[in-house]
């Protein structure tokens, strides 16, 4: 039947979001632990060997490491929000779940846009061709 071969727009968007969620899962699995450790544990505890400059200030100074920040934080944030929102029905919030999910995705979307704004503010030549 023709209807069974075509996916609705909502189903396609949902499939794409699951793909991004999966990618975010890999990103947060491989890249997030080191960022948490160096920024929130090693540096504050004085385990950081590179003098007095904090890790984030060093990371935002170059393009490749800025890309690392963006990929790690944006990917992890989307993964976290998507997974958390998917868990809401299990927490008994089925009714309010859709509204909370909309709020969650709005927060994630806004945060990712602000992430781009801040990274560009810290490195204005970021998008300039070498």
């Amino acid at each position: 039947m023709a209807g069974s071969r075509t996916l609705s727009m909502a189903a396609r968007v949902h499939a794409m979001l699951w793909g991004v969620f999966s990618l975010g899962g890999f990103i947060s699995a491989f890249l997030l632990p080191v960022l948490i450790y160096i920024n929130n544990i090693a540096y504050p505890l004085g385990l950081w060997p590179a003098g007095s400059t904090d890790p984030t200030s060093i990371l935002v100074a170059s393009r490749l490491s800025t890309l690392f920040i963006f990929v790690t934080v944006a990917g992890s944030l989307f993964h976290g929000v998507f997974r958390f929102m998917s868990t809401l029905p299990e927490l008994g919030l089925r009714g309010a779940g859709e509204k909370l999910a909309a709020v969650g995705y709005a927060i994630a979307g806004t945060a990712i846009v602000m992430l781009i704004v801040y990274l560009l503010a810290l490195n204005p030549g970021l998008l300039r061709l070498p």
Binding site: L32, N39, G80, R83, T87, A111, Y118, L119, A121
Partner: peptide
């Protein structure tokens, strides 16, 4: 359920880090 709870902490760190970048910026 513990696996799903990891997403909450990942979210929190990501938002805190974006805040840190905003202060740096």
């Amino acid at each position: 359920m513990l696996r799903e709870l990891t997403s909450f902490f990942i979210m929190v760190f990501s938002l805190l880090y974006i805040y840190q970048l905003s202060v740096l910026a």
